[in-house]
Design a protein around this nucleic acid. Structure first.
Lengths: 239, 239
DNA sequence: CCTATAACTGACCCGCCGGTCAGAAACATG
DNA sequence: CATGTTTCTGACCGGCGGGTCAGTTATAGG
């Protein structure tokens, strides 16, 4: 007995939420819009989510969870011993990660819109990353590949910033950039910058790498006037 | 004749706007709160600004304008010729910039809260920076200090990301960090990473540099429940 | 002190949007 | 097909907060 829920409803709601939240941010996103994009009524939305915030958290937290598993560096004992192989492995890991980011770029761009009470989402994400990168740096320092005098937290901050900026550049790009080239070039620069004397990383040509001329490709819509209708006149006086 | 406007009113309104916008973001900030913090009525606010958005733009754009002038690199002809001096000058410039950021950290943190139709603010800021950094890189490449095979846009992206992450770490710190140490360490790493063979930058100890253990010092208030009162029960059913 | 003018106040207005609920529609089962 | 059960609809509610304006207060000038 009883009617069975259309399994596509929930999924299209999540999809739509992803899209609208990414475009407008949490506050400015309207539940009606989400429902409309999903092709159902507002009532249906509230059958699947208690509040707008719950839907938001559902989308974001699910993404963060998937990120966490991906971020877990392969730090077991089956690591190659040769430095070159280690670097190669790291590069592949980077590429895989960025590939994932590209696939989920809509959700990723939501993270930037988390303000005020939801800043902790972005915060935990960063912390996760930072901790991870820091461990990687320490690993290489211990092995003597990176200089001993480096402050792992500082280096991790720089690395994280550089890579997250790369990710941002990717987000604002229409078509998928040459991730391998980008990440290889980045790794080269940091390898040379962090290497200890006895690390034999040679310089190589990466001139074929292309980056959007300037990442001005921000898909900024023509600034649709927000919320309420604009006022008629100017401020009354008082300068 | 006529009453003269209390000159402190406008200023305290701007101050208050800065504070509230930084704390809540544009959407969640309430005009009443701004007025209350400024110690005037809501009506007074609307004597000085046409809309909430206008006040927001006023605060942000004024800051961006000041940034622009600071960002203009000293690329005249009175530049020193020795590479070491050039680096020293660049470092001083970095320090000055970060000092400015520290002084204006409240406004700076507003930029992150610009979403949707106001994303272009952050966008133009980044573009400005990127363009600037890129020119710097090209300058060093031309002089033979950096490798010729580097893609200036890619390098600029990495640099910008690294430094803006540093700035973020600074923002989430209670007391002013040792900017000179941070920036010196960063410059060392990138110098080594970008240098051409014939650049003679020696490695130096920077182990005394300290960075907050992990920048978890995000001043995230205990997640004050946003906007409307929460609902009582759970979502009705539908799984 | 009187008057004109502009700054300032705060109670009020009103549209938007998060959330609700009575009823319609869909489906399973007998 | 009748019946019970659950999904789904969409008109509706309520309150929050941006914006207004009639009235009050401060000041300058006469």
């Amino acid at each position: 007995m009883s009617r069975v829920a259309d399994p596509r409803t929930r999924i299209s709601l999540l999809r739509a939420a992803e899209e609208i939240f990414a475009k407008k941010g949490l506050e400015a996103a309207k539940v009606e819009d989400i429902a409309k994009v999903a092709g159902v009524s507002k009532g249906a939305f509230y059958l699947h989510f208690e509040t707008k915030e719950e839907a938001f958290l559902h989308v974001v937290e699910a993404f963060l969870a998937r990120c966490s598993t991906l971020l877990a560096q392969p730090c077991g004992d089956d690591l190659p011993t040769r430095l070159e192989d280690l670097m190669e492995l790291g590069l592949e890991h980077d590429i895989q990660l960025f590939e994932f980011f590209w696939q989920n770029r809509a959700i990723l761009s939501i993270l930037n819109t988390c303000n005020g009470p939801y800043a902790y989402l972005m915060g935990s994400f960063r912390k996760d990353l930072q901790e991870n990168v820091k461990r990687g740096v320490e690993f290489f320092v211990e092995r003597g590949a990176y200089r001993k005098d480096l402050e792992p937290n500082l280096v991790a901050t720089l690395l994280m910033g550089a890579y997250s900026e790369l990710a941002t550049a990717m987000l604002s790009s229409e078509k998928k950039p040459p991730l391998r080239d980008w990440l290889l070039a980045a790794r080269r620069i940091f390898s040379l910058g962090l290497a200890s004397d006895r690390s034999p990383w040679e310089r190589q040509d990466v001139s074929h790498v292309s980056l959007p001329d300037i990442p001005d490709a921000l898909p900024s819509e023509p600034a649709e006037r927000p919320r309420r209708a604009a006022r008629a006149g100017r401020a009354r006086t008082a300068r």
